[in-house]
Design a protein around this nucleic acid. Sequence first.
DNA 1: TTAAAAATACCCCCCGGGGGGTATAAAATT
DNA 2: AATTTTATACCCCCCGGGGGGTATTTTTAA
Lengths: 260, 260
Amino acid sequence: MTQDAVFRTLGTLFRQVRSAQFTETFESLVIDLFQPQSVIVLVFENRRRPLLVSQWIPDAELQNVFERSYFDHGYFLDPYYELATSDLPDGTYKLRDIAPDRFFRCEYYRRYYRQTRMIDEIGCLERMDGHRVAHLSVGRNEGSAKFKRKDLSLLSALSQVLMPLIIEYCNYSIDSGSIKQPERSQRVLSEQLFYTKLSGRKRITLRESEIASLIVQGHSTSAIGLILEISPQTVKVHRRNIYRKLNISSQTELYTQFLT
Amino acid sequence: MTQDAVFRTLGTLFRQVRSAQFTETFESLVIDLFQPQSVIVLVFENRRRPLLVSQWIPDAELQNVFERSYFDHGYFLDPYYELATSDLPDGTYKLRDIAPDRFFRCEYYRRYYRQTRMIDEIGCLERMDGHRVAHLSVGRNEGSAKFKRKDLSLLSALSQVLMPLIIEYCNYSIDSGSIKQPERSQRVLSEQLFYTKLSGRKRITLRESEIASLIVQGHSTSAIGLILEISPQTVKVHRRNIYRKLNISSQTELYTQFLT
DNA sequence: TTAAAAATACCCCCCGGGGGGTATAAAATT
DNA sequence: AATTTTATACCCCCCGGGGGGTATTTTTAA
C-alpha cells in the first residue's frame, strides 16, 4: 500500500467517522498494512465488561472462541485490559512487552488465550475520558510470522491519528446505540473483584487477594515482589497462606476457584 | 437399595439384555448404588474411536463437553483407553490408581478432562474378544465426594456379573446397528499414532515418539523411565532431542503440536 | 491496653522441567 | 567397510513451585 493510499484512506475514514462504513474502511486499512488474522476494537471500562466496537476475525472457529469466552472472563486477565485499568500512558504495545513474565505458561494462557490461536498481538490503548479506554488489537495467528519491530513503529505512528478517529467513532456508535453488547453466558466472572470473589469462600485478606490476582494473571513470585515492592519471600508466604485458606495446593486450582 | 432389589434388577437386566430397555435399567441400578453424576458405556477398539454404547450425563453442559471432545481426541489420552489398548487384566480400577503420576497436572487434564468437572472416576474394563474391550465408567462431579474404597469393592464385585451382561448387550446392539456413532468434528486426532502424527513434521524416531506419547499423557520423566525400563537420564535426552527436532521448548507445546 | 491477626522477611528442603555438556554401543545407511 | 543415526547413560547447572519452619513489626479488634 502506498503512502499516498494510506493518507487517502485516512481521509475517507475522517469523512466516515459517523457512519457505519467506518469499521470496514478502517479494518481494510489495518489488514492491508499488517496482514493480521484479527482486528478488534474494544472499549474498556474499569471493572466492567468491555464493549465490542468492531471485530474482524475471518476464521469462524476463532471468532467463536473469542465471542464465547472473552466477555465472560477472558478480558479480565487480558494484559491490555490490565494495562487499561491501571493508569497507563496511552500508546502502542507489543503483547510480549506488557505480558506478565510467566504469561505463556499461566492457566489463562493455556485455557483461553491459546485457544484463539493468536501467536502475536500488538495493540493500542487510548483514554477516551475519565473511565473509558479505547483499545485496538491487531493479531497474528499460528502459521503467520510474529510482528516485527517495523510493524510496531508503523502502528505506533499510525495510532496517532487512528485512535482519535476510532474514539470519535466509538462515541458516535455508543451514543447511537449501535454497539453490539455481547451476551454474557452462564459462567460469569465479570465485574467481581478478586477480593469479593475469593473472600466469599474463606476470608482472605485484601493483600492476599491482591497477590492471588497477580498469580492468576501469570506473574511469578519474584515478579509480584517487584510489582508490589516487597520481598519475593513475603510473596511466597502470602501464597502459602492463600493456598492454606482456600484449601488448595497449586495455582492451577487457584485459577479454578477464581472461575467458579 | 436392598441386596434383594439388586438381585432382582440383575434378573431384569438379564431378561432385557437384548432389548432397548437394558441401558435404562442398568443405569438406574448404577445410579442407585453409587450416586454418580455420569454413567457411560464405551467399546474400545485398538486405535479406533470408541463406540458409545450408552451415556447418562444429566448435566447438559457436561454432556456437551463429553460429546464434543471425547471422540475427537479425549479418548486418546484417557487412562482407561490406554489401559484397554495394552494387555490388561480385566477388572475395576480407580482413575487415581491407573492415571499417570502427573496426570492431574498434564495438559490433557487441564484442557479436556477437567472441563468434564469430573473429580473422581471408577471404571471397569472387560475384553469382549480379540480387539474389543468394553468399558463402564462411573463418575462423580465437583461437589460430590470421591469414591470410597467400599465403592470400588462393590463395583468390582458387581462387575463380575454386570460386565458380561453389558458385553452381551453391546454385541447385540452393535449387530443390530443401533449404536450411535458420534460425529467427528474438524479437529481430529483420532486413529493417528503419535509417530505418524509427529514424524510428519520432522523425522523423530519411533522411540522418541513413544516417549513423546508418554509425556503428553502426563507421565513424568522418571515414570517414563520406569515404564520403558530405561534410565530417566535417557528419557531426558530423548526429551531434549524431541524438543529440538520439533523446535519447541516445553511439553505444553508438544501437546499443541500433537493436537494440530 | 492488650491480645490477635496481618504483613513483612528470612531460613531450610525437595522436586521436576529445561538446557548444556560427554560418551559408548548398537543399528541403520551409505 | 565406513559413516551416521539412534538409544543408552551419566554429569553439570538454573529456575520456579510447593511445603516446612521462625521472627519482627504493624494494624486491627477485643
